[in-house]
């Protein structure tokens, strides 16, 4: 019926059937990719089952666990010492004194502008080459051990990053908070300690969590200067057995440590900020 024949009768049409979920390009691609992941995962499990021997497990399982423990030690010690050191650096970055600010900025830039590996080599091999001088001043016992050198340089490195996190967080606290404290006649130190810092630390929680994970990943570098952390044990096991599953096991271990930690940190963050969350109803 053409539009010109207007009969005044409203015609009713059948409603079109609901559209079936289309096999769009995105859907096909997504399912192919997901299939590839599943295949890769199954392949990995099959490979690990096929490659598993009692001998390999007896020889290396304990060493891997010891490696994880060394990794935890390196990361834990560096993070704690780094956190302590980051306070003066962050305060220096915030200071109005140009000399102190300049020194703190220089330190932070030096540590953040160069690779951790280059820093580690510079301390372990570079400073280590002055063994006579170090013996003379009685510090050789410290620098002789690769573990100490690694903890020292990781501490210096993470302190610079943590100082930037802290500085950003402190600057983010509204100025009104400080002013309110001043209006109440609270001493400066107490304002900083009781009002500004707690609020700053809450915004700093997320970057701190990232820094912990970056440190765990970065600590693999210690294996390049003869420390037998998880990565070091892996490399030693590979160089003896030429069995590629050593690297796969290391990957699984690192991934589970990092994922567990990330999830725990999320929980921790949620718990600490529970007073800031609104009920989702």
């Amino acid at each position: 019926m053409s539009p010109s024949e207007n009969t005044g009768v409203v015609e009713f049409f059948e409603r079109p059937p609901p559209q079936a979920k289309k096999w769009s390009k995105a859907r096909i691609l997504g399912i192919i990719l997901l299939g590839l992941w599943i295949a890769a995962g199954l392949g990995l499990i099959y490979y690990l089952f096929a490659a598993y021997t009692q001998e390999f497990a007896d020889k290396y399982a304990l060493k891997f666990l010891r490696g994880i423990w060394v990794t935890f030690q390196i990361v834990g010690l560096s993070l704690i010492f780094g956190a302590l050191l980051s306070f003066p650096v962050a305060l220096g970055r915030l200071s109005k004194n140009r000399l102190i600010g300049g020194i703190a900025f220089g330190y932070s830039y030096l540590m953040r502008g160069t690779p951790l590996l280059a820093q580690t080599y510079l301390v372990y091999y570079g400073l280590g080459s002055f063994n006579k001088e170090l013996q003379a001043i009685g510090l050789w016992w410290f620098f002789r051990d690769a573990f100490n050198c690694v903890v020292l340089i990781f501490t210096l490195n993470t302190a610079a990053y943590q100082a930037e996190i802290l500085r950003g967080a402190i600057e983010n606290v509204e100025k009104g908070q400080t002013e309110a404290g001043q209006a109440l006649g609270i001493p400066k130190l107490v304002i900083f300690w009781k009002i500004v810092l707690p609020q700053a630390l809450i915004t700093a929680l997320r970057p701190y969590g990232n820094e912990i994970i970056l440190m765990i990943k970065g600590s693999a570098i210690a294996s390049l200067v003869t420390v037998f952390d998880l990565m070091g044990e892996t490399r030693r096991a590979y160089s003896r057995s030429f069995d590629f599953q050593t690297y796969i096991w290391a990957a699984i271990l690192y991934l589970s440590v990092v994922e567990t930690l990330r999830r725990l940190w999320d929980k921790f963050e949620n718990y600490l900020t529970r007073h800031l969350q609104r009920d989702s109803e």
Binding site: K217, S219, I221, L224, M231, R235, F244, Y247
Partner: peptide, 15 residues
């Protein structure tokens, strides 16, 4: 994002 870069490098290089 979870694997250490060094490990990824070794896995790619050897694997």
């Amino acid at each position: 994002r979870g694997l250490p870069e060094l490990l990824t490098l070794f896995i790619v290089y050897f694997g």
